[in-house]
């Protein structure tokens, strides 16, 4: 078991392994997203209340889900990196942050566009989910800004890891407080919890989108981690050999 972990943590081995996994993740994720998009747009019946506008759910929910998943991945990786001083874990945390920020942005943008026909405004402060997403975006931006502000690589890894962990403790508290805050004036929400059960024709494309997006996120994450590993190991012999080989191929 331990030898497996040690091997996994060794940069050249991980680099090769990640390269093998990326096409698989893409091969699973792309068809799922293609099916979900097609079925979500054309097969699923329009919602009895929101009409066709509810179809935005097929991009909004996966984006919101991944924005939180990416934060979890980032915080767990940061914790592992901080405790066991594992460089690879820091590379994962550093790679997850910009992806998470993109998905958070996407969740905000699609939520706002969805809100326009539903509420008549581009932004509704009363919706607790959107407000939480906005704060999550600020957390991502703070993490990335701190990382960018520290020149020394190891120090940047460890300092930003502390911030990621502090943020991870705060995320549920932020979520709870925003829920409480919006519950005071019964704001309108896009998605109600415990609402009417969603029919199969509507649900399957959504599940396909969520899983498909997750696999695409995995592929993107591994692509980014590969570059991070290369950069961190830029003085190692195997990286130099790789760089010369790729120069010949290009």
């Amino acid at each position: 078991m331990w030898t497996f972990f040690h091997k996994l943590a060794s940069p050249p081995h991980f680099y090769g392994l990640a390269g093998k996994f990326i096409p698989w993740f893409a091969a699973i994720g792309l068809p799922l997203v293609a099916y979900g998009t097609w079925a979500g747009l054309f097969i699923a019946p329009p919602d009895y209340q929101q009409g066709d506008a509810f179809r935005i759910i097929y991009v909004h929910v996966p984006a919101a889900y991944l924005s939180m998943l990416a934060y979890m991945v980032m915080a767990i990786a940061a914790g592992i990196g901080l405790i066991w001083r594992m460089k690879l874990a820091h590379a994962v945390a550093a790679s997850a942050a910009p992806l998470g920020a993109w998905f958070t942005f996407l969740a905000l943008a699609t939520g706002s566009i969805w809100g326009r026909p539903m509420w008549g405004t581009w932004w509704e402060w009363g919706d607790p989910r959107l407000t939480s997403e906005l704060i999550l975006l600020f957390l991502y931006l703070g993490y990335m800004a701190l990382r960018a502000a520290i020149d020394d690589g190891t120090k940047a890894d460890r300092a930003s890891a502390v911030l990621a962990l502090v943020g991870a403790v705060n995320v549920p508290i932020i979520h709870f407080s925003v829920e409480w805050w919006s519950s005071l004036h019964q704001g309108p929400t896009l998605i109600r919890e415990g609402g009417p059960a969603i029919a199969g024709d509507m649900l399957y494309p959504l599940l396909a989108m969520i899983f498909g997006f997750s696999f695409l996120f995995g592929a993107l994450l591994l692509m980014r981690v590969k570059s991070e590993v290369l950069y961190r190991e830029r003085r190692a012999r195997w990286v130099r050999r790789l760089a010369t080989e790729s120069a010949g191929a290009a």
Binding site: I135, F138, L139, L141, G142, A145, L146, A149, I150, A159, V162, L163, V166, G167, N170, I173, I174, F176, S177, V178, W180, W181
Partner: peptide, 25 residues
């Protein structure tokens, strides 16, 4: 986290304010 940084001043707000939102709320 920002103590030794040259532009730590502006960064501090970016790090602390989102964390302080539950307190403010």
């Amino acid at each position: 986290l920002t103590v030794g940084l040259s532009r730590g001043n502006a960064l501090l707000g970016l790090l602390v304010l989102p964390l302080a939102m539950p307190i403010l709320i």
